[in-house]
Amino acid sequence: MPFRLRSAAPFTGLIAGLALAVAPALSPAVAPTGPLVAPAAAQSTSQPVLRIGAIPDQKPEKLNRLYPLVAGELSRQLGVKVKYVPVVDYAAAVSAFRTGDLDLVWFGGLTGVQARLQRPGAKVLAQRDIDVSFHSVFIGNVRSGLRPFNQQKGLTTLKGRRFTFGSESSTSGRLMPQYFLQQAGVKLSDFAGGAPGFSGSHDATIALVQSGAYDAGVVNEQVWRASLHDGKANRARVQALWRSPGYPDYHWIAQPDLDRRFGAGFTTKLQQAILSWRPSDPEQKQILSLFGAQQFTKASPEAYGRIEQVGRSIGKIR
């Protein structure tokens, strides 16, 4: 009955199309970056899986390159299964850590403090050499007439200008800059439009200030340098205005119960593994260079006391 067959074609076609599109999810060869097994399901199997995550502060291509490398390296050193679980934003990373769905997370200063407050007992394992004293850079559009300054007081020149932060939860793109602004006597309502923008990322901040949409903004120094280096930031159109004092930023945080789930002393072994990465090992060199660091060093929770204090004073931590 050829007619009947043809008459059913549109919807079977639609369904076949859907099925085809979903088919890749079934084949491990083209598995997406995300896990295909729910974390809960993974937990119930006999061998525990260490789930690592990170705040998404980089382009996805870099995240997708870096964290599977980290997972592979940790798995090799520790002899356990390690899986990278991507999350969609900073707040989601904090929440997933609180609910126990991520075991080891690369947090920023503020998100790390938020995570430890929501998950008491969580352990600060390590930071990069550059995180001990991290800096923000205030940048301005060249045509805006804003000029570089050496004193923090110079921040008052931003009053009445269109200004953007990065992500709401970013330490270097929002928290500490807001604190420095406050110290200089600049309120958020002093900016043009009565409030700052939130560009969502450091890259977007640079592009938007360079284009002139915003007169000024603030970014993480590491990203600013990289953008100058690869030409994404055009010195003729966007310039650094002021480099902030240093403060502690990114760090690795682990769940409090790893020893119970993976065996006594696991947390220490995990910390030792991260601290042992050196540029002399080709695999580890790649990881370190993607992190933009020479090596990781021990970090203590006390170092982030100041971040917590600032977070509380501007209402990001309650």
Binding site: P32, G34, K59, P60, V85, P86, V88, A96
Partner: peptide
Amino acid sequence: FGLGGLGTELRLT
């Protein structure tokens, strides 16, 4: 959430 997906890719790119 937790699955990646095209949305995460598009958003971050």
